[in-house]
Nucleic acid binder design. Sequence first.
DNA 1: TTTATTTGTTAGACAAGTTTAACAAATACA
DNA 2: TGTATTTGTTAAACTTGTCTAACAAATAAA
Lengths: 169, 169
Amino acid sequence: MRIESDREKLSSNMEDYLEAIALIEMDKGVARVKDISRLMKVKTPSVTSALNVLANKGLVEHERYGYAELTENGKRIAHDVLKRHKMLTKFLSSILKIDPQVAAGDACKMEHVLSPQTCERLTMFVEFVGAGSEIDRPLWLKGFDHYLKTGKRVECKNKQALKKVKGEK
Amino acid sequence: MRIESDREKLSSNMEDYLEAIALIEMDKGVARVKDISRLMKVKTPSVTSALNVLANKGLVEHERYGYAELTENGKRIAHDVLKRHKMLTKFLSSILKIDPQVAAGDACKMEHVLSPQTCERLTMFVEFVGAGSEIDRPLWLKGFDHYLKTGKRVECKNKQALKKVKGEK
DNA sequence: TTTATTTGTTAGACAAGTTTAACAAATACA
DNA sequence: TGTATTTGTTAAACTTGTCTAACAAATAAA
C-alpha cells in the first residue's frame, strides 16, 4: 500500500501535461481545462482525467470546474522538463540547424526520454558551443555548415576556402 | 475499412520488436519467440502477440510454433532503426562521452522519436566529427573534454594549456 | 514410443491514456 | 432574473501493450 506523495517516475504524458500547465500559467496566470486541451491537442475529458492523476500525486491543485494550478513539486518538475526542452531546442536549431518546427517536435519527444547524464552533457555541449548568433559560431561549426552543404570538409590549408567559410552565412 | 499492408507509422514498441528480430537473425540465422522474449525482457505471450501484429502488417512471417522471419519490408524498417541506433550510440558515446550502458539506453529511446531531418543532420555531424579514435578527435572536441572536466574553456593564446589539451588523455 | 521438459499459444485481466456521448456547472446576455 | 452558450465532468468504450495461468505442441531422453 502506498501513501501520498509517490516519488515514482512520471510518464511522458504526465510530464507533458505539467509542462503545458506551466506554459499556460506563465502566459495567462492560470490554466484552464480548455487551454490545456487546446495546447496538448486532446479532448477535454483527457485533461480532466490527467488532472485527477496529477492531483493525486500532489503535483497540481484542481477544484471541480475551477483552475488548475501547479504545486511546488509540480512546478519543480515542470521547470525541469522545460529546461531540458529549451536546451534541446537550442541544440537542434542552433547547432544542427534543424527547422524550428521540427526541432520543437523532436525536443518535445527527447525531453522525456534522455538520461540525466545525457541531458547534463548535452547542456554542457550547448554551453560550450555557444552559437547563439552567427558571430559566436565557432569556426569548426562553420566547417560543419559547409560540410552539410557540400559534403566536403574544408581544407584548412587553402586560405581561399577558409576565408569563404569564415566569412559568409 | 483498411486493407493489408498499411503504411501507418509503427509504434516504438513494434519497431523494437523488429530490431530485436533483426539482431537475433544476424546472430543465429533465425529468431525464436524465446530469444525475442529474452532480448526484449518481456514474457513470451507478449512476443506472440507482437508477432501477430507484425505479421498482419506484413513485416514478419511466423507460423505457429515456428520461427519468426522478417519480410523484405520488415528488414528494411529494422535496418533503418538499427542504423539510427548505431549512429546515436556513436554520437553519445564517442562525442559526448556518455557511459556505454547509458548511451545504449538513450539511443534505444531516441531511435524511435527523432524526425528524419534530425537523424540525417546528426548522421552528418557524427560523420563530420569522426572521433572514432582519440587520435582522430578534433582539437575543438578536446577543448570540449577539457570544458567538461574543468568548466573552463581552453585559452588558445596560452601555448602551455593548448599543448596540454592537445596532448594527453 | 512413451514420458518429461522446453517452448509457444490462448484466454482473460490489467494499466494508461484516449475518445464519444450525455449531462452539469458557470458565465454571458437579454 | 431567466435563457443560451461555453466549459467541465462523468460514464462507458476502445487501443496498445503488458502480465499470469492454463494448456498445447515440439523436442529430448528413457
